[in-house]
């Protein structure tokens, strides 16, 4: 007798479908697909698209938790479909597009707002000192790397925006990932762009919309801990404010 190591099962999926070409609200549709226990939710969606309904629309690319494309709500939680394993979901699995974003079609969320905000915070190195190639590379010690490395792990998957109730309530909030990435560059020893970024993130639409719910850090698939980044930005911005208003002669 053969040992069956790869168990098969029928998995019920409830998927929110939205067709922008037809007027009306998104509707949950029920599907049953044959799956294997070690599959992830993305595998089940791929099976469904390949074998049952080719019109199902969703984003994915790497299937290995790197590209950040397949974020969706799985049983109400923001998850990467490639990181959500079927064995952890015994019953019907409800799949919806990421919360707080408009729906483009089916499981595709409109990312325009996040991308515009990401651009505003200048998430790239603004060199502290301009160096020419002949001057050599920008050097950094392991301790200096450690200061920001965790925040550099962000893959822009937007799960934190789908988890953040304050973003849902105030759509103008720049939000967890963009502010964390600004913080990542602010903490980089080679960077000199903090003042420019503060003009965006130390505003009412920036870090001050955050009420430290902490949901962003709980759902982050890369352990970036955006909530930590935002609290650190608040502390630093508060120190800035007191320096600017009471001790303007002190260099920041």
């Amino acid at each position: 007798m053969m040992d069956v190591r790869v168990a098969e099962r029928q998995t019920d999926l409830e998927i929110l479908r939205y067709n922008p070409e037809i007027a009306g609200e998104p509707k949950l549709e029920r599907y049953t697909v044959p799956t294997k226990t070690e599959w992830c939710v993305l595998d089940a969606l791929n099976y469904l698209k390949d074998n049952v309904d080719p019109t199902l629309t969703y984003r994915w690319s790497c299937h290995m938790q790197v590209c950040g494309s397949c974020g969706m709500m799985i049983n109400g939680e923001p998850k990467l479909a490639c990181k959500a394993m079927l064995r952890d979901y015994p019953g019907v699995i409800r799949i919806e597009p990421l919360a707080h974003f408009p729906v483009e079609r089916d499981l595709v969320a409109v990312a325009d707002d996040f991308l515009a905000k990401l651009k505003r915070v200048k998430p790239y190195l603004i060199p502290l000192e301009k160096r020419l190639p002949e001057d050599g590379e920008y050097r950094q010690t392991p301790a200096q790397l450690k200061r920001y490395r965790q925040f550099a792990m962000c893959i822009n998957c937007m799960l934190c925006y789908a988890a953040c109730p304050e973003y849902g309530l105030h759509p103008k909030f720049i939000g967890p990932a963009a502010i964390s990435l600004a913080h990542r560059y602010n903490r980089d020893s080679r960077d000199g762009g903090r003042d420019e970024r503060q003009e965006e993130i130390a505003t009412a639409e920036g870090v001050w919309e955050c009420t430290f719910v902490g949901a962003c850090s709980e759902v982050c698939p890369k352990h970036v801990d955006p909530a930590a980044a935002l609290q650190q930005v608040k502390v630093a911005s508060t120190v800035d404010w007191y320096l600017e208003h009471f001790m303007s002669w002190v260099q920041k």
Partner: peptide
């Protein structure tokens, strides 16, 4: 494009 916007309830969102 006809994006569909799902409103967040300002008074009951925390039950989610």
């Amino acid at each position: 494009r006809y994006p569909y916007v799902r409103e967040v309830s300002p008074t009951t969102w925390y039950f989610r």
